[in-house]
Amino acid sequence: MLKRTALYNEHIKLGAKMVPFAGWEMPVLYAGIVLEHLAVRDNCGVFDIGHMGIIDISGANALPFLQYLATNDASLLAENECQYSILCNEAGGVIDDILVYRLKGFFRLVVNASNTEKVLAHFASHQKERANVVHRKDISMISLQGHGAKEAFPGLPVSLPHNHTVEWKGIVVSRTGYTGEDGFEFFVENEKAASLWKEILEKNIPPCGLGARDTLRLEAGLPLYGHEYNNEISPIAAGYSWAVKFNKPDFIGKAALLKLKESGAPYKLVGLKLKDRNIPREHFNVLSGGANIGWVTSGTFSPVLKMPVALAYIKPQFAQLQTEVEIEIRGQKYSAVVTSKKLL
């Protein structure tokens, strides 16, 4: 049985195309992926991200618990600030990539829907620190993304700095997102989610589905768990060493990650742009001179660049910008050029 977010009925009313995603029944699109994608890039759009896992951690040991389990340094967070962080295993592979918020008297983590149960089990297995871990199923998340949001929805806390939160109309608002655009994300109680959603739609801000969320994050070079990350891929390979703080006390994965940082990861995450119109898809081979040098992790047709693009792990000696490589698509080789993973 698929789970439904607090906004399920709204999606049905809007005629969304619903699909199963990470155990949830979610809108993949309303008007169309390209239209929704361009709405966010050109102006703004709103997403139901109520499938994301929200986990609050409190108690005297909340900070040491997080410091041991996550790679970034949560002690650097001021109240109402958030940071990107990563939960690693001992080998340095990624269990999940998360946002860590420091709110009044507790930490709030936002974890991937596909990993929520795994993360909760991981936390339960490291409970010697005795922090209070609560899965907040009573809270939804709505994400308003795009530079036009400020004008489209007057009254937003526009002076809020990036990666900060503020209480606004009784709702925790965060200046964050997963599209490469400016934006606001709302932590709203389930029973109030539909009224906030409708208030946003009344401003003629279009609803956007998971399809556009994926193409937007891909163009922005943002990793998605299960594609750019898994339990065998390290944050070093993905280019997120900055979210691993080696100067803090011991944390899970520290020794392995330090070794990787010194020796260099065997693969590096890069962007690829193709000249032809065939689209590279996940798991397609990347080649150079006929030899396999890596694999595509995500690929699509970029609605902004109007060309096929991909994120791929390739051997570091080929990761120099502008390097010509090939992608194998249905038995044929197509030429591609290495770019920054931030494709726009």
Binding site: V34, G211, R277, N278
Partner: peptide
Amino acid sequence: LGDVVFVE
């Protein structure tokens, strides 16, 4: 399929 972007 949704938005078609290429036909070979």
